[in-house]
Design a protein around this nucleic acid. Structure first.
Lengths: 365, 365
DNA sequence: GTGAAAGCGCTAACAG
DNA sequence: CTGTTAGCGCTTTCAC
């Protein structure tokens, strides 16, 4: 059994003179990477490594004199702490894994951006992972994440497999799920109800007297849930005969403007007298608007259009797009706070937060 | 929190009994993080830790029998290697830092996406950093990056300060700069010439008989360089009298559709007879198109519009947008390859690659 | 093919 | 406030 303890005779006591023992290389052992280490800084400052460490991490715990000497040594040597080593020793990696289906497309940008910024300000780095819209790569991704021992994981609209969820939970890493209100959160949750959105949009259109509604939506699960709730509520409100299903055009995520154009074209073919369309993204909505325009269909007079996401451009379209706004920044900030607090040992009271949504009523509906 | 560490008594020593010396905890020293370690796996498999390590990292270097036993032990314990520890010992972090001005906005999505995917496939994780469009936060970001000892850094359109560049170079980390062809690359470079784009677009419009051109562009440096080269070439081609400066509307990055609308409005006020506009992003171009439309200006008949970026939606606009295409995927792949090769000890022959660009001629110009 | 020893660079724990 | 000691969990080196 390897007892890899170092006999003290190999370590000349650091306090008294040690002649050429200052050389960090003993015997013919290991090649050092060549960088400046804390040891070098400490030596230059004339203190023990741990003191130099304290000067850098808890300046208030050392004397001003030592603090200054260490800082000078850092300056002189260009020392940059090795966070890998620090993380290993302290069991805090200061790394947070952020997983999104994809960074392509505008949907998750706001969350990724906010997390990166907020966490960076608190001394954390973001490790980005893309899960894709299929579940196949989740396992490999999870392994890569857990292997880094992050101080937290933020999951956005993903991690379906029960196996993966169990593993994450077992790892003991704080997990924040976002972008949905799942019934059985792994750990913490910041999201909103896709069903509520579908219902609310149906009521919105109903109030405005629309009678012939249809949907263009992504095939991903969350989009489906919005769409189905929307359809159900439409039936409940008498906007649609329960017999035939509500006209729906399904597209593959991530959604595109082109899909929106095509969607309207196909829906119109089946049902030329549509007077309202709910799209599962603003990009789809823009496509619908452009297609309508090129066919001489007036928006909102003849056709009402509602999007989802409230992208930056939506307010500047002609007509301005009515859409559903999700506060991605707010979600990102709360998720970051959850993890930061947890790392600081603060137990969060509210582990599930519904950030809600709002329908931004503009001109298109 | 479940302390799911397996005490050695739960793992019968497979080789020979070694009393309580097998206990990894000596004295009242350090608390272990609670995870399964390689040591646990090795013990369960009845081999030395180093052998278990080899079974996982270089399976071909151990006997099939050992390989199987180790794999079973991994399975049974749910062991996930601690990459922090591995990185510290091997001096390879398998981490690549990717720095972009911001992930908000469509410009850098393709690069971030491709890098994340390509590097993940090769066993690397992406650490995301946002530098903003000002240079102020570069230092802190750099410190955070170098501290992780990444195996590579990909810089996209940033790192202006000479100080920061020097520090990166001194750190010895392979660096790939992208999105530009700087005269003095830090290390490796995959980019294109913003000046060449400006000139080429000017010629394109000249060939199509445009005479009164203007520009809507971001204030960031790269955009400026495109715009200035464009203006210069316009003068050279006689499209603009050298006396007055070319009409330019400057906007703050990241660019938006709204800025495009406003840009056209203001340019038109000063120069009502414009017949062509070069925008520094497709989003700006879309704004220009929408504004033109709402004013009854026909595109391309009365006004030609050229964008930059060839966003996914541009081909589906009405009229379809003529724009400049940059192969973000190609850039990402090359950048990833540079770093992977370098980590493998392969010296790359071509350290500077010009990926060029192409003008996608569609209907708007 | 396998293993013992010796750290990678840092911090927690416990003294003084 | 400062230092000593003992590792964090892994891999490199060198020996068998």
């Amino acid at each position: 059994m390897s007892e890899n303890r170092l006999s003290s005779s190999e370590f000349p006591a650091a306090s008294h003179q040690d002649g050429d023992a200052a050389s960090p290389r003993r015997r013919g052992s290991r090649k050092s990477a060549g960088g400046v280490t804390l040891r070098d800084v400490a030596q230059l400052a004339g203190v023990a490594p741990i003191t130099a460490s304290r000067a850098l991490n808890t300046p208030s715990a050392v004397s001003p004199k030592v603090l200054q000497k260490v800082r000078e040594a850092v300056e002189k040597t260009g020392y940059v702490p090795n966070l890998l080593a620090g993380g290993l020793a302290s069991n805090k990696s200061r790394l947070v894994a952020v997983v999104v289906p994809t960074v392509i497309g505008p949907v998750f940008q706001e969350i990724v951006h906010t997390l990166t910024e907020t966490l960076a300000a608190a001394g954390y780095q973001v490790m980005l992972g893309q899960s894709g819209y299929e579940n196949s790569r989740e396992d490999a991704l999870l392994e890569a994440i857990i292997g880094r021992r992050p101080d937290g994981v933020v999951l956005t609209g993903i991690m379906r497999s029960a196996e993966a969820r169990k593993r994450l939970l077992a790892s003991g890493i704080p997990v924040v799920e976002t972008w949905d209100l799942t019934p059985t959160p792994i750990d913490m949750l910041v999201g909103f109800s896709h069903e509520a959105i579908g219902r609310e949009v149906a009521r919105y259109l109903h109030q405005r007297g629309r009678k012939k509604v249809a949907v263009v939506g992504g095939r991903d699960e969350r989009s489906q849930r919005r769409m189905n709730a929307f359809a159900q509520e439409c039936v409940a409100l008498g906007m649609h005969e329960g017999r035939a299903p509500l006209p729906m055009h399904h597209v593959t995520a991530p959604t595109t403007l082109g899909q929106g154009r095509q969607g309207l074209a196909e829906l119109l073919q089946a049902q030329p007298d549509l007077d309202a369309i709910f799209c599962s993204s603003d990009l789809l909505a823009l496509g619908v608007m452009i297609e309508a325009q090129s066919r001489g269909i007036a928006i909102p007079e003849q056709l009402a259009v509602v999007g989802f996401g409230d992208l930056e451009f939506s307010r500047d379209l002609q007509p301005r797009l009515t859409t559903v706004r999700i506060d991605g920044t707010g979600i990102g900030q709360r998720a970051a706070r959850f993890i930061i607090d947890r790392a600081a040992g603060i137990e969060v009271a509210e582990r599930v937060v519904d950030v809600g949504f709002s329908i931004i009523a503009r001109d298109s509906a």
